[in-house]
C-alpha cells in the first residue's frame, strides 16, 4: 500500500519534471516568446523544477517532522543567493569603475 503511494509520488515528480524540462528547452529555441523574456522564462522553469524535485524526490515538505530540513534549506538558499548576487553586484561595479583602464589596454 505505502509502496504504491511512494511510487505514485515519484511518477508524479517524473511527469512534472519532464514537462518543465521540455518547456525550458522549447523556450530556449522558440521565437514565440519575446526575446528578453526568454532568460526569465528559463530561470522560472528551473526554479519550478527544483521545487518539484525537492518535494517529490527529496520529500522536503512542510510536514511537522520536516521543519528542521526546511529551515536548513531556507538558510542554504539565503547563503547561496548572497554568494551569487553579491558576487555579480560587486564584479559589475568593479567592471564599471575599471572601464577606462580596459579601454587603454585594448587600444595599446
Amino acid at each position: 500500500m505505502s509502496a504504491v503511494r511512494g511510487m505514485r509520488s515519484y511518477l508524479v515528480g517524473l511527469g512534472l519534471a519532464t514537462l518543465m524540462t521540455i518547456a525550458s528547452f522549447w523556450a530556449a529555441q522558440t521565437h514565440v516568446i519575446y526575446g528578453p523574456g526568454v532568460p526569465v522564462a528559463i530561470v522560472v522553469l528551473a526554479l519550478a523544477q527544483m521545487g518539484i524535485h525537492l518535494v517529490f524526490f527529496l520529500h522536503i515538505t512542510t510536514a511537522p517532522d520536516n521543519t528542521n530540513n526546511v529551515l536548513a534549506l531556507a538558510f542554504g538558499i539565503l547563503i547561496a543567493c548572497l554568494v551569487i548576487f553579491g558576487s555579480l553586484w560587486i564584479m559589475a561595479n568593479l567592471n564599471h569603475n575599471m572601464m577606462p583602464a580596459a579601454h587603454m589596454a585594448s587600444a595599446a
Binding site: N68, N69, A72, L73, F75, G76, I79, A80, C81, V83, I84, G86, S87, L88, M91
Partner: peptide
C-alpha cells in the same frame, strides 16, 4: 541521519553556488 546528510548537501550546494557565481561573472 537524513537531517545530518541534508546539512552536508546544503553546504555542497553553497560550494556550487560559488562556482555558479564565478561562471556568471
Amino acid at each position: 541521519v537524513g537531517y545530518g546528510f541534508w546539512l552536508f548537501l546544503l553546504s555542497d550546494i553553497i560550494m556550487f553556488s560559488a562556482f555558479f557565481a564565478t561562471y556568471a561573472v
